[in-house]
Each structure stands twice: as structure tokens, then as C-alpha cells.
């Protein structure tokens, strides 16, 4: 086996894939801070995975193209004892790579997603001081209570004293969703926000999202609340439109809803 040829193949394939991954734009509409975090992590994982993928591909292609034997079956090559260092080095390298991916984008991405310092994330043990509610960041600029039932979504704005069947949010404000269900498990998911949380009966779950651009379901189907947990007959159709508005338009919408 010519190590140089294999390495050259690997470098060329890796270069191509890294070039493609770093330019990857095939994401759906990104309409929230959380979407930017998720897409960054996604692209970063693609970059990290590229050399691993191409290493296996290079070895696979190389072996098929230049290690084919002649005859039925081919004459076995003379046995050469294994060098004990190779598996050790491989183990150490893959362990280091796994450890790094656990750190970044793993823990780093989790902390960014939840908007808490990494130290606080790691300090949040079962007996520790950080509790479930506060890990998502305790406060939001706006509270929306989400109630899921078969097969529709209801949104309550307790501070504004209104309720709606569509989800309307102001751009640039941190929204705290308090999610529950009245019957079975559903899941609150907005593809354009890249995050979801289950709606569970007898439990309130939390999710924080900061919309970063205005838009509506009519412009992009990614702006919809889609049930993402199998909930029976109407599961596929359990969706509600989302609208993200300028703050003044949001206030106007609130006022209009309150008059109803």
C-alpha cells in the first residue's frame, strides 16, 4: 500500500468537501437567534465530519481500485504483522476528535442555545442550585402560553390578556413560551426557529426564542407551528401560521385582538 497515494486522495477529497460544506446554504428560512445558533452548529459539524468522511472514502476507493486480487479466490497476500501503534494512534485521535465535538459544538452550542454561560450549564447538577425553569434563562420580554390539544394550537398572551389561534410575535424580543397539553403529548415546533419542545399533559415545559426577522406563513411555510410528536389522526395537519411583526405592528395587533 502506498501511503502517499492514499494521503493525496484524502487531501483532495477533504479539500473539495470542506469547500462545499463551508459554502452550504441549504437551510430553510432562519427567523430567530436560535436558528442562527443551530445553523452555525450544523455547518460546523459538516466541516468537522468532512475529513472523517473523506478518510473512509479514500481508503474504500483506494482499496477497491488498487487492492483487487486476481483469481478465484485471489492468492492471499503474505501476512505482515500489525504495527501495534496504529490502533493506538487511531483510538487517541478519534477520542480527541469526539471530545472536541462534545465540547464544541456540543456543550458550547447547548449553552448558546439556552443563553446561559457554559459554567452554569456544567454546574447544573440534579442537586445543584440551577433549576429547570431557570436554565432556559428565567426571563422573557414576552410570555406566550401555548396549549396543545388534538389537533389544534391555542396561544395565550397573559400579560396582554388576549388569546389567538395564530402565533403572532414581535421581532427582536425574547419570547418565553410556556407549553402544555390538555390531552396527549404534542410537540411545539417552528421550523424557521430551529427548536422545539414537547407539549405534555400535567407538565409545563419552557422554550425561549428571539425572532430576528419579520415574516409570515404566507411568505414561507417554515413559519408555522407544526406538531412534531405523533398524536393520532390529525397529527399531520396540526399546524398554525406564525407571523413575526415589527414591534409597533405587534402592539396594534394586540390592541385589535383586545377589542374583539
Amino acid at each position: 500500500m502506498r501511503v502517499g497515494v492514499l494521503a493525496a486522495w484524502w487531501l483532495v477529497l477533504t479539500g473539495l468537501l470542506v469547500w462545499a460544506a463551508s459554502r452550504f446554504q441549504g437551510f430553510p428560512l432562519a427567523a430567530a437567534r436560535e436558528a442562527a445558533v443551530a445553523d452555525h452548529a450544523f455547518r460546523f459539524l459538516m466541516l468537522m465530519a468532512s475529513p472523517v468522511f473523506t478518510l473512509v472514502m479514500a481508503a474504500l476507493l483506494y482499496s477497491v481500485l488498487s487492492r483487487r486480487g486476481q483469481g478465484d479466490p485471489p492468492e492471499p497476500p503474505p501476512y505482515v504483522p500489525e504495527h501495534p501503534a496504529v490502533p493506538r494512534v487511531w483510538f487517541a485521535l478519534t477520542a480527541a476528535l469526539a471530545a472536541y465535538v462534545i465540547y464544541n459544538p456540543g456543550l458550547v452550542g447547548l449553552a448558546e442555545m439556552r443563553e446561559v454561560p457554559l459554567s452554569q450549564l456544567l454546574g447544573s447538577s440534579p442537586g445543584g442550585r440551577v433549576r429547570l425553569a431557570s436554565l432556559g434563562g428565567a426571563e422573557g420580554d414576552l410570555v406566550v402560553r401555548v396549549r396543545a390539544s388534538r389537533w389544534l394550537w391555542q396561544f395565550e398572551y397573559p400579560e396582554q390578556g388576549i388569546a389567538a389561534r395564530e402565533l403572532v410575535l414581535p421581532v427582536g424580543r425574547r419570547v418565553r413560551f410556556e407549553v402544555t397539553a390538555t390531552d396527549i403529548v404534542h410537540s411545539f415546533w417552528v421550523p424557521a426557529f430551529r427548536t422545539k419542545i414537547d407539549a405534555v399533559p400535567n407538565l409545563t415545559t419552557y422554550l425561549h426564542v428571539t425572532p430576528t426577522r419579520t415574516g409570515s406563513f404566507e411568505e414561507s411555510v417554515d413559519l408555522r407551528v407544526q406538531c412534531a410528536e405523533l398524536c393520532g389522526v390529525g397529527h399531520a395537519l396540526m399546524a398554525s401560521p406564525v407571523r413575526v411583526l415589527e414591534p409597533e405592528k405587534f402592539d396594534a395587533w394586540v390592541a385589535q385582538q383586545a377589542r374583539r
Binding site: 500500500m1 492514499l6 473512509v56 481508503a59 474504500l60 483506494y62 482499496s63 477497491v64 487492492r67 483487487r68 486480487g69 486476481q70 478465484d72 479466490p73 485471489p74 492468492e75 492471499p76 497476500p77 505482515v80 500489525e82 496504529v86 490502533p87 487511531w90 483510538f91 478519534t94
Partner: peptide, 17 residues
Amino acid sequence: GLVFLSALGTLLRGRLW
């Protein structure tokens, strides 16, 4: 990853049929 190492190491050292 070690399973892949084994597969690739065997392929690269072998005469494939």
C-alpha cells in the same frame, strides 16, 4: 470508529475478491 479501522485496515492489507 475502531470497527471502521478494522474494516479499512483489512481492506488495505488484503487482496480483494
